[in-house]
Design a protein around this nucleic acid. Structure first.
Length: 525
RNA sequence: GGGGAGUUAGCUCAGUUGGUUAGAGCAGAGGACUCAUAAUCCUUGGGUCGCGGGUUCAAGUCCCGCACUCCCUACCA
């Protein structure tokens, strides 16, 4: 048996200091959808997500709470993991924590490789440092306020003058190699507008990067100098390697899955993923990931979400209000992926009712009801297909390739838009053929129309499993499609009657179906 | 200050290399049907395509200027 193609996708790892909000959910869900799509399409898939647990802030917060840093991150990480597991249904294969023992090995190994490449040197760093932001600021980026203390202008956090011995990475050396790489791999970053910003930044020149700290010790120790711990970037980005077995580059997982096919991240960290990370990997002699997709941020009715405004939405609150599948669908259908999006209650309800309940749910309900009542409760035998039948079936058939192409570049909205266009055509077909009339005049023709409609629904249900796994599974159940598969949750979805491999295997006439129950309830306020 | 994106129907947005009466979805109006989750189908959109100039036989679609909005980046203080 030939080896299956593989697919390795990651999310950014989250700094678990607050509570998860709908923006976190957006990233997890979109990565989950991508992973499920690839599994259903026959790819042996590995999906990595997790938390970034080191740093001075954690150490200080822990002290303030009378905990060890590990105790604090255990507590905070549990909250994020619970959202993945119990609220959003995220199908990750590993939830990595930068405090995992194997991650220490991986981070120290890539560090050693960069040292061997001559790209790490010891120097001194000085500047205005904000503990809360974990960032240095130029003097011009700070101001002295009335209380006599100095603050970051941008973030309003207090800064202190710090002089510190630090290891540096020779990022400057990689300006040209990176530009060459971008030119040869124009799809490395997406969407294009974000990638262009990155390229322009690199063209302006790169400074070497401070990559260690000695003022605190909650981090991965620098090999050969236990006075230092790695600063965020080497430690955090390396999780993508750790997740598939690094530093054991001979391991089965590493051989299969590295280089990663997709890093899915937010626009705030595009530079780290499109510049630092490839440079580190070039230095360490490791293959570069194939693509970084940069998603936008979500706004509440056009306003930035913020605690002080009090408009932050918790994923659990939305899921309770609208249901998980409606939330997943809304997030992927409503916004062009990569752009910022603005949500309102009315917009979510609109998608839920119009797209899910009316266009899809009602089409399924009306056609399956007729089958249950008029075809002895089994999938009917179709007769000769008319042009109208063939036209709607052909439009439905085209959705597989259209979806593949759209998913390949993470244009989820495009796949869904086209799918719902075809559903609109299917509703028109159904009304046009009027099987409830045919029931009185031509039962054979009625059975054909009902069969064709059921086939359309089957194909659509297959393709939207990644987005609305629960509802799509119910839809396939209702059509009597053999149970099996898990809507992309695991690699068991690679094949079987609910995988994309079965897209062209039509419903078997005579298959019994149950009396249908509505799958997509309307949202009533 | 420099660079970039944008400003199209009530709302959210599409509009290829400039070319017949500027499009979709949602919302609204009218009609149809009754299989269905008060759903679905059909019909219905005279909107200064931000403003003002220009190029052209022809511009939402190219050029210049202006006004807002947003993003990236710098610098002064």
């Amino acid at each position: 048996m030939a080896d299956k193609p593989t697919y390795y996708i990651t999310t950014a790892i989250t700094y678990p200091n607050g509570v998860p909000h709908i923006g976190h959910a957006y990233e997890y869900i979109s990565a989950d959808v991508m992973a499920r799509f690839k599994r259903l399409d026959g790819y042996e898939t590995f999906f990595l997500t997790g938390t970034d647990e080191h740093g001075q802030k954690v150490q200080q917060n822990a002290e303030a709470q009378g905990l060890t840093p590990k105790q604090l991150v255990d507590k905070n990480t549990a909250v994020f993991k619970q959202v993945d597991d119990e609220v959003l249904g995220i199908s990750y294969d590993r939830f990595i924590r930068t405090t995992d023992p194997d991650h220490y090995q991986a981070s120290q190994d890539i560090w050693r490789r960069m040292v061997e490449a001559g790209d790490i040197y010891l120097d001194k760093y000085s500047g205005w440092y904000s503990v809360r932001d974990e960032a240095y600021y130029a003097e011009s980026e700070t101001e002295v306020r009335q209380d006599g203390e100095r603050y970051s202008i941008e973030t309003g956090t207090e800064v202190h003058w710090v002089e510190e011995e630090s290891y540096f990475f020779r990022l400057s050396k990689y300006q040209q190699p990176l530009l060459d790489f971008y030119r040869k791999n124009p799809d490395f970053g997406g969407p294009r507008s974000r990638f262009n910003e990155v390229i322009r930044f690199v063209e302006d020149g790169l400074n070497d990067l401070s990559i260690s700290r000695s003022t605190f010790d909650w981090g991965v120790p620098v090999p050969g100098n236990p006075e230092h711990v790695m600063y965020v970037w080497v430690d955090a980005l390396t999780n993508y390697l750790t997740g598939v077995g690094f530093p054991d580059t001979d391991s089965a997982a590493f051989g299969k899955f590295w280089p990663a096919d997709l890093h899915l991240i937010g626009k705030d960290i595009s530079r780290f993923h499109c510049i630092f990370w490839p440079a580190f990997l070039m230095s360490a002699g490791i293959e570069l990931p194939k693509r970084v997709i940069i998603h936008g941020f979500l706004h509440n009715a056009g306003e930035k979400m913020s605690k002080s405004v009090g408009n932050v939405v918790a994923p659990g609150a939305w899921v309770d209000t609208y249901g998980l599948d409606a939330v997943r669908f809304f997030l992927l259908r409503e916004f062009p992926y990569g752009q910022d999006g603005s949500y309102t209650h009315d917009a979510v309800v609109g998608r839920k009712n119009s797209d899910l309940a009316n266009n899809l749910g009602n089409l399924a309900q009306r056609s399956l009801s007729m089958i249950a009542k008029n075809c002895a409760g089994v999938i009917p035998e179709p007769g000769q297909l008319t042009e109208a039948d063939q036209a709607i079936l052909e439009q439905t058939d085209s959705l597989l390739e259209i979806s593949r192409e759209a998913y390949q570049v993470q244009e989820f909205h495009r796949a869904l838009e086209r799918t719902w266009y075809v559903l609109g055509e299917a509703n028109a077909y159904f009304a046009d053929q009027a099987p409830w009339q045919l029931k009185k005049t031509d039962e054979a023709r009625m059975r054909t129309v009902l069969y064709v409609t059921a086939e359309v629904i089957r194909k659509v249900a297959l393709l939207i499993q990644p987005v609305i796994p629960g509802s799509a599974s119910k839809l396939l159940d209702a059509l009597g499609v053999e149970i099996g598969g898990d809507a992309g949750r695991t690699n068991a979805s690679n094949d079987g009657p609910r995988s994309f491999a079965a897209f062209g295997e039509p419903l078997a006439p005579g298959t019994p179906i149950d009396k249908p129950q509505p799958i997509f309830p309307r949202h009533e306020d």
